[in-house]
Amino acid sequence: MTLPTSVDNLNNGGAAPLLQVNGLSVSFRSEGGLVRPVRDVSFEIGKGETVGLVGESGSGKSVLSFALMGLLPPHNSRIDGGEVLMDGRDLSRLRRRAMSKLRGRDISMIFQEPMTSLNPVYTIGNQIEEVFRNHTSMGKKERRERAIDLLERVGVPRAPEIMASYPHQLSGGMRQRVMIVMAIALKPRLLIADEPTTALDVTVQAQILRLIGRLAEEDGMAVILISHNLGVIARVCQRVMVMYAGQLVEVAPAAELYRHPRHPYTRHLFECIPRIGMGGHRLNYIEGSVPHPGDELPGCRFAPRCREADEGCLEREPELAALSEGRASRCLKEGGAGFASGD
């Protein structure tokens, strides 16, 4: 059974979206059977739009980003349904060769730990130039010049010297800048940044977030910023999608989400975050833990942990329903007309 998709055009403008994801579902074969980390996810990203995807571990946010990039492991995972449309093409059905041509050129990704995404045995220069070698016909000299320009643009000091060094010789922040250079080298229209600052110190995090925001603005590049940290998302994003147990549960313009979260999960999350100046005020927490991606629940997937849930929430599955322009929430109590499973 597929869920009815009642929310269209959740982007903030009427223009044709850059990326349109419709009813995307991903399943993995695991020892315990089939698990479904991404369940019927639909959204749009406008050109040049910065969108945050927030969720705790187990929410499916990273699997979703891998699915968008065509990087799901082929031996044990598959896209069960839905489509990922860019320029009228369904990326989820592209062959590997076509997808790898598109990666870097149209969509790029940066990850949490730049050390594991950089090759330890090649110099930084070599790895940046490889992007141009693979995707362009640039000559050696031009490749090198472009690489140095880009390093300088992202605030790497002594760029020519850094070109000759190896990843282990750089700090975490510098490595992440190098990853950003490789990701934006071909001027992609969409950058997916998956927890890009989680391994970094807070002062370096602030530098990298400002850099991502600046690059998006200067190049008109759209960004999907994935993070478990609502503060990080607030610094960069115009719009926010909240993901829980494989589903989008709330979508809203950033300012509205932070001022007036509509889904109980989003509200619960905010109450868990310690803030400076709260002193003495006791934090709330969310009972229990995220359901396993293999668990099938008859009702709302958040209901077992929700302080606002009643019996109906355990029986009827809410849909992601539009609340107002650009806002949607998946909650029976917020007007999310539900349907009993089996309807």
Partner: peptide, 12 residues
């Protein structure tokens, strides 16, 4: 500087 670097929960 450390305190200022903490991302605020207010996008505005």
């Amino acid at each position: 500087a450390l305190l200022q670097a903490i991302p605020s929960l207010d996008p505005e």
